[in-house]
Design a protein around this nucleic acid. Structure first.
Lengths: 159, 159
DNA sequence: CTTAGAAACACAAGATATTGTGTTTTATCG
DNA sequence: CGATAAAACACAATATCTTGTGTTTCTAAG
């Protein structure tokens, strides 16, 4: 790795840590002695999201994270759990055959995850994602949650 | 490094090459066997360029490269040589005490480099950078080049 | 449809990085 | 300005990566 201060080619690693999905290395130039930080990151073909209105935009995990975070505000869900969801969802998308994915697929994956984790967050997300028009939609969803399988039964609907 | 396909933490390096200022690694997940590419890059505090009009913008080596390339069009200067110039100039900037640098400093560094390399490119760059108003400016510059030290004398002014 | 260049694949010997643990020094938040 | 978290620093034992060389595929350009 080239030293950015003197363009010398030989630098050695002084420290190396895994930080989230990256490896941060602290390097030292063998020639000028200066130190600097590098990051190793995955570089994959971009995934594209196909929106309902026909538009196509590059998938951005940050947007996904933000929308999940919003749904989970004040709920007993840690940032770590949100990270896990984001990672798992992105991994699912990566395993698709096509690099073009319908936004509804992403939405459904989020719902799937939230449903198992927290009913309130689930309803919040659904209300935005499914574009609830009236209170009836909430009631319907709550009913479904109550009647639903193992995951649903374990939960309490309250706030 | 996390596998982007299955989120497993253990992946091993299968190949690793230096490409320009980066290290490209090919990794393989020990769990799912999938392969993917990563890049290690330097991450330093941004340098800011102070323009004459008082504006301040992040230094962008790509812009520098472009303007040098333009000055060197059709001249006997290889892309490698241009890369070297860019690298050397950026390194000089990195070694400044402040991370805020006057655009004139960058301009002068470019001139310094081009002067030693090719008089035509030098004059082209100067004419834009120094904002030559008339032919007299060109003549003056040519005169200076002719009369100047060792580097000047070695060159021929022609096109 | 040929080709040049990049990216990927392979392998082995030698060199270098990783990781745990712990301390210290910045930054950032309130 | 005090508290925390993140980044930087250190060190040693172990595990992994790097680099040369060469081939193969893939893609973009002609």
């Amino acid at each position: 790795m080239k030293c950015p201060y003197c363009i010398n080619d030989d630098t050695k690693v002084v420290d190396s840590r895994q930080v989230e999905a990256q490896i941060r290395r602290r390097r030292e130039c063998e020639k000028c002695g200066k130190r600097f930080t590098t990051f190793e990151r995955v570089e994959l073909a971009e995934i594209y999201i196909l929106k309902k209105n026909g538009s196509r935009q590059p998938f951005n995990s940050e947007k996904l994270r933000t929308s999940i975070r919003k749904a989970c505000e004040k709920r007993p869900i840690s940032l770590t759990q949100i990270e896990e969801m984001v990672d798992q969802i992105e991994a699912k998308l990566r395993n698709e055959d096509s690099i073009e994915i319908k936004s509804s697929k992403v939405g459904n994956l989020v719902m799937q995850k939230l449903r198992k984790l927290d009913p309130v967050a689930y309803i919040r997300f659904a209300s935005v994602y499914k574009d609830f028009g009236d209170l009836g939609c909430f009631e319907e969803t709550i009913d479904k949650l109550k009647r639903s399988g193992p995951n649903g039964r374990k939960q309490h609907i309250s706030d």
